[in-house]
Simulated assay, not measured.
Amino acid sequence: MSKVVILGTAHGSNVAGKCSPDGRFREYRFSREIISMLKPRLESLGLTVFVDMPQDVVPLPMSTELSQRCKIVNGICGKYGKENCVYVSIHVNAAGGDGKWHDARGFAVYVSRSCSSSSKRLAKLLCDLALVRGLRGNRSVPGEHYWQAGFYVLKHTVCPAVLSENLFQDNRADVEFLMSPSGKEAVAALHLDALKQYFGINQ
């Protein structure tokens, strides 16, 4: 049976807020660009790859968007077997949500509070690789090397699932890095290498 990666996009262009204070950086665009880099690389390894909502505009209200994402993921799991699937939702963090620049910076990855050991294993791989690559930022890292939260898409999908927060859209230095070719490559390569390790791929 195929090993399946389901990549989750950030909220769409029609969701207010999700941008840097100066408006130059848009989370929806960055997430989809990283996924466009990551998907063919994963497929070249023999993995089957889906994207939950590739379109820029997502259904509203947000409760509808989130429930539809989970329906998409769980439908794929029903076809391929949840034990053969993993869901990776790719986002960018924000410290304030107030349209101002903040000091917090760095990488984080989240799992559900009631998640499987497989979710924790992938999350730890992502965090450890981020730390090795200098993406820690300036915040303390939990001893487990992942954060736990009640995010809807983590709670209501049936396969192992993680949500990555790739630096901060309201930190000036993080935004400059994320908008650069080297920053985008770093984020895409981080996810690629973590998934290779998760699936035991040595290529």
Rank of each mutant, 00 (worst) to 15 (best):
M53V: 11
K79C: 00
G75M: 04
P40A: 07
P21Q: 09
E43R: 11
S67D: 11
V15D: 08
E65N: 10
V49T: 13
A16E: 10
R29Q: 15
N14V: 14
S13R: 12
R29V: 14
Q55H: 05
L45Q: 13
Q55A: 12
G78M: 03
R41G: 02
P59K: 11
D56K: 06
R69T: 08
M37V: 02
K18G: 08
F25I: 08
K18L: 15
P61I: 13
I76Q: 06
K71Q: 12
V73R: 03
G81P: 00
S36H: 09
V73D: 03
V58P: 01
R29M: 12
T64I: 13
K79Y: 12
M62Q: 15
V51N: 01
G23R: 07
T64V: 15
Q68F: 00
N14T: 13
S31H: 04
G81D: 09
L66H: 05
L45K: 12
F50C: 00
V73G: 05
E27M: 05
Y28S: 15
K79E: 06
E27H: 07
R26H: 14
P54Q: 02
C19W: 01
M62S: 15
G75T: 04
K18F: 13
F30D: 06
R24Q: 13
G46T: 12
S13F: 12
R69H: 01
P21S: 13
R24D: 14
R69C: 04
R41H: 03
V15K: 03
C70Y: 00
V49C: 15
S63E: 10
E33K: 14
Q68P: 00
Y28G: 05
M53A: 09
I35D: 00
I76A: 05
V73C: 06
S67H: 01
G23Y: 09
K39S: 11
Y80I: 00
P40Q: 10
G75D: 10
L38W: 11
T64A: 13
G75P: 01
G78E: 10
I72V: 08
I76L: 12
L45W: 05
L38N: 11
I72D: 02
A16S: 11
S63M: 02
C77Q: 03
S44K: 09
P40D: 11
A16G: 04
P54N: 06
Q55E: 15
I76F: 04
L42C: 02
P54T: 04
S63H: 06
N74T: 12
L42Q: 07
K71R: 14
D22I: 12
